[in-house]
């Protein structure tokens, strides 16, 4: 079946809190913008639930078919952060993975965000029990060769 609406980009509008979708109309091939206000949403709201609610909304769901729940959730996180007084930069930083950031120092919620992002890769590479090529005891040898490059992480002064 041909897609009726092809999502191109999405974003947020802060006032009133809304999710914005730029899409192509499958019939007319025209690029259009749709603004979807997020209702009953406060700084205490569950972003994942709110995202699901929007995705299943009878008026919007046709447009949001190829927007993932995860992406909608992230957009809701940005909206909620604004209600909590955080800047857009802070919000985006919390949704990005910085390999040098010490995650031990984050709050539960901030850590959960980082873990959720790591889970994307985890799920993508995950081999499940039901996969035809699943091997429970998968052993792979990585022989230590002389030409192994020294890990750049070791090239510093701090006692390593």
């Amino acid at each position: 079946m041909e897609m009726e609406f092809v999502a191109k980009r999405c974003g947020v509008r802060f006032d009133p809190p809304s999710i914005v979708l730029v899409y192509e109309d499958g019939k007319t091939k025209k690029i259009r913008q749709r603004i979807m206000p997020v209702r009953n949403f406060s700084k205490y709201s569950d972003c994942s639930q709110a995202a699901e609610r929007l995705k299943n909304n009878t008026r919007h769901r046709a447009y949001l078919r190829d927007v993932t729940s995860r992406q909608l959730e992230r957009l809701h996180v940005v909206l909620r952060d604004r209600l909590l007084g955080r800047t857009l930069e802070q919000s985006l930083a919390s949704l990005r993975l910085d390999p040098n950031q010490d995650l031990n120092k984050l709050s539960d919620e901030e850590l959960a965000r980082k873990k959720a992002q790591m889970d994307v890769l985890f799920e993508r590479n995950r081999k499940c029990k039901d996969d035809p090529d699943f091997v429970y005891d998968l052993e792979v040898e990585f022989p230590e060769a002389d030409d192994h490059e020294t890990c750049s992480w070791d090239e510093s002064e701090d006692g390593f």
Partner: peptide
Amino acid sequence: TQRNFNFAKKQGLPLYYVSAADGTN
């Protein structure tokens, strides 16, 4: 897996390259 992580070697500890996602080792 082509890199040496010196910490293990320096402490004389075995080093395992693993993946919880695909199950390697």
